[in-house]
Design a protein around this nucleic acid. Structure first.
Length: 428
RNA sequence: GGAGGGGUGUCCGAAUUGGCAAGGAGCCGGUCUUGAAAACCGGUGAAACCGCAAGGUGGUGCGGGUUCGAAUCCCGCCCCCUCCGCCA
């Protein structure tokens, strides 16, 4: 949610800023008009209410003095009726305005490069060169099936397309990656671990910006509950409606969760393999910071996520998303992309964003400076990392000519000392 | 799921025969002090909204209703606690 006072005072700036995203500014105009109407109606209502309150107080006085109140009572009855009419108008226009405001995206930070789509994203860093092979590297789905550690067919059978089953060393590798990532962020980077609910209510989904606009991307359950598309949602909303102390900022959380996405708009993309699943695991970093320090915290967050890939010795690059490719709620986003030999290109494995006050306003997360008025915090998050895609990257980058896969050294303690994944065929 | 109790600010907590939401803690300023603490004095302390301002609206878990006027009365819902039932 944008700072509406600022928008009202700077409508042209808001408009050009939204245009940079390629966002149609018709909605902004509608909101500005509604806002004007709303204020006019509220002023009318407030004057009448003031009158009503004065008269009501006078009635109380007169009654105590034992005087007759029938005349004055009749007079104020008319006012009350009128107030009810205006109030219902006000309520209608206010809720229309509030609902529409939730559809307006965040404004890009000034440092975000101008651009139309992902083709205009700018590479800002590259770590190690793409892995070289003296044989033709296989895609992870062939490796996974050859080693019998990924079962795509049975995933589809028991659920639907875009579901897979990890087996044996594959399941263990997934679990090892989760534990490894959590431990690095806990022990080395000083985050605090939380294990959140995977189902949340509509209010929580609205707080981080998934609702109302992206309802089609979510799995809805009964009882007004939704499956989370990322741990960002429950973790950021932990402090919804709260007033934090300035001294306790920044709050830094790391959370493992399964993530559930309908992928409604991506038919035909990444249909093979584990890259785009309806359910996947992710270790998420979330920071709640002082507004003055959020951008330096974003840089550190990015480094924390990058370090996982460095420890795994996987080649990657970092890009900054241009205005046209920026997500709905973000003011600035870095994507980390890992090298995938089978595709011969880098693929997104982490997205690190600063949302400034956009989510804090929706979820009403504030902090208090001394005894001053509460102010909105800045919220940030980033994948640290997407586990399924990391597993893909490990399989593809660590594969050998015979179809076996070397276990990265840092993961061996989590794999019972296993050094090479070889075919197991426990269950056929 | 059933029965009972509860939900008031940053925190504690009063007011429920309808009539401006007590009091305290905290916080800020001051007096005193070498400094601090304590004490005392004053201020502040209820989201949010409207207004250039003065000020106003609003505000007692949420949403409605009755009334000139609702924390208080009525209806619906949510959450917490205790007990019962069920359950990993």
């Amino acid at each position: 949610m944008l700072d509406w006072k600022w928008v009202r005072e700077n409508p042209e700036l808001a408009e050009t800023s939204l245009q940079k995203r390629g966002f149609d500014t018709g909605l902004l105009q509608e909101l500005l008009e509604l806002d004007q109407k709303r204020r006019a109606i509220q002023q009318e209502a407030d004057v009448l209410k003031q009158k009503k309150n004065e008269v009501s107080r006078a009635i109380g006085q007169l009654k105590q003095e034992g005087k007759d109140i029938t005349e004055i009572q009749k007079e104020v009855q008319g006012i009350s009726t009128r107030i009810k009419e205006i109030d219902s108008q006000l309520k209608a226009i206010s809720s229309e305005w509030t609902e529409k405001l939730l559809w307006l995206p965040n404004l890009p930070h000034f440092s975000v490069p101008l651009g139309k789509d992902e083709g205009d994203n700018q590479e800002v860093k590259r770590w190690r060169e793409p892995t070289q092979f003296d044989f033709d590297p296989l895609p992870h789905w062939d490796l996974g099936e050859g080693l019998d550690i990924i079962d795509f067919q049975r995933g589809v059978k028991i659920a639907s397309s875009r579901f897979a089953v990890l087996k044996g060393a594959g399941a263990k590798l997934e679990r090892a990656l989760i534990s490894f990532m959590l431990d690095v962020h806990l022990e080395k980077h000083g985050y605090w671990e939380v294990f959140p609910p995977f189902l949340v209510n509509a209010e929580t989904m609205t707080g981080t910006g998934q609702l109302p606009k992206f309802k089609d991307e979510l799995y809805c359950c009964q009882d007004d509950l939704y499956l989370i598309p990322t741990a960002e949602v429950p973790v950021t909303n932990l402090h919804a409606g709260e007033i934090l102390l300035e001294e306790e900022l920044p709050l830094r959380y790391v959370a493992y969760s399964a993530c559930f996405r309908r992928e409604a708009g991506s038919h035909g993309r990444d249909v093979r393999g584990l890259i785009r699943q309806h359910q996947f695991n992710k270790v998420e970093l979330v920071k709640i910071t002082h507004p003055e320090r959020s951008y330096e915290e974003l840089e550190f967050l990015l480094l924390d996520a990058e370090e996982i890939l460095q420890l795994l010795n996987l080649p990657y690059r970092v890009v900054i998303l241009c205005t046209g490719d920026l997500g709905f709620s973000a003011a600035k986003t870095y994507d980390i992309e890992v090298w995938l030999p089978s595709e011969g290109r880098y693929r997104e494995i982490s997205s690190c964003s600063n949302f400034e006050t956009f989510q804090a306003r929706r979820a009403n997360i504030r902090f208090r400076k001394g005894s001053g008025k509460p102010e909105f915090v800045h919220t940030l998050n980033g994948s640290g990392l997407a586990v399924g895609r990391t597993l893909v990257a490990v399989l593809e980058n660590y594969q050998q000519a015979d179809g076996t896969v070397v276990v990265p050294e840092v993961l061996r303690p989590y794999m019972g000392g296993m050094e090479i994944i070889t075919p197991q065929f426990e269950v056929k």
